[in-house]
Amino acid sequence: MKLHVRHETRYAFDAPVKRLVQSHRLWPADNAAQRVLSWSVDVPGGVVGASFRDGAGDMTQTVSVRGPVTELTVTVEGQIETADTAGVLKGHRELVPPSAYLTATRRTALTAELRGLSRDALDGLEGAGTLDRAHALMRAVANAIAFVPGETEPATTASEALNGGQGVCQDHTHVLIAIAQAADIPARYVTGYLLSTADSVGDEAGHAWAELWVDGLGWVGFDAANRKCPDATYVRLGSGFDSHDAAPIRGVLHGQAGETLGVSVSVSQAGQAQQQSQGAGQRQQ
């Protein structure tokens, strides 16, 4: 499938910022499920540099803007050829050992409730393979958390999301990471884009899902918000321990005055009409 992605992030600062630096993970890496045809990240007025592929196989780039800056727009645009690998990440070059992803962060920290969810999900699956267990964990998350935008915030933890029973893809992903780690399955946060279809959810600004380490297969994607493994409608950007660590754009918040953020993402099949989604006021830091 040939997908066209346009992802625009607009920052407006209440007070002029003297100097602004961002770390971008906005370049998809080629793997068996995706091949970049064309891609660009445009930051008017920005000096680009210090780019590299990190140990997890993701491209990182640094952008600095000399101030005073009152607004900034980051525009990602590209075409990518995708294929369905049933969620299995193949042909992705990386060095980080899977066991490093057994480490929880503040957002994925385990609680008794999360351990309980993990235990209940795997009840009766003691002898099952990791892949079956991973699917059971994904179903448990989908059942425990209804997809309801606006009920959680970027800083919401897995524990809080589970207690609230509602959330967006970020919350589903954090909870899935936590309960996978509780079952000693390495798990990580993945950011990317999703082609919206009639019955998919997650059309807020950008998408997120989890990857779980399955012996014999490697990293396998699980999108609990949509109860499925990623297919050709998904574009994978980058990974990390949690939403903060994996954020496509990381910057520093400047002062108390703060900033407003507007994000719009559109993913369409090349040659077809665009579907556009908007998320306003979402902070990605």
Binding site: Q22, S23, A50, T62, G251
Partner: peptide, 24 residues
């Protein structure tokens, strides 16, 4: 580096780790 490690760090240099990791 608040862009790589603790986001609330005021002591570091934003972007330092990217320069380090790209050999600068």
């Amino acid at each position: 580096d608040p862009l790589c490690f603790r986001a609330d760090s005021m002591l570091g240099v934003p972007g330092l780790m990217n320069v380090y990791r790209s050999g600068g």
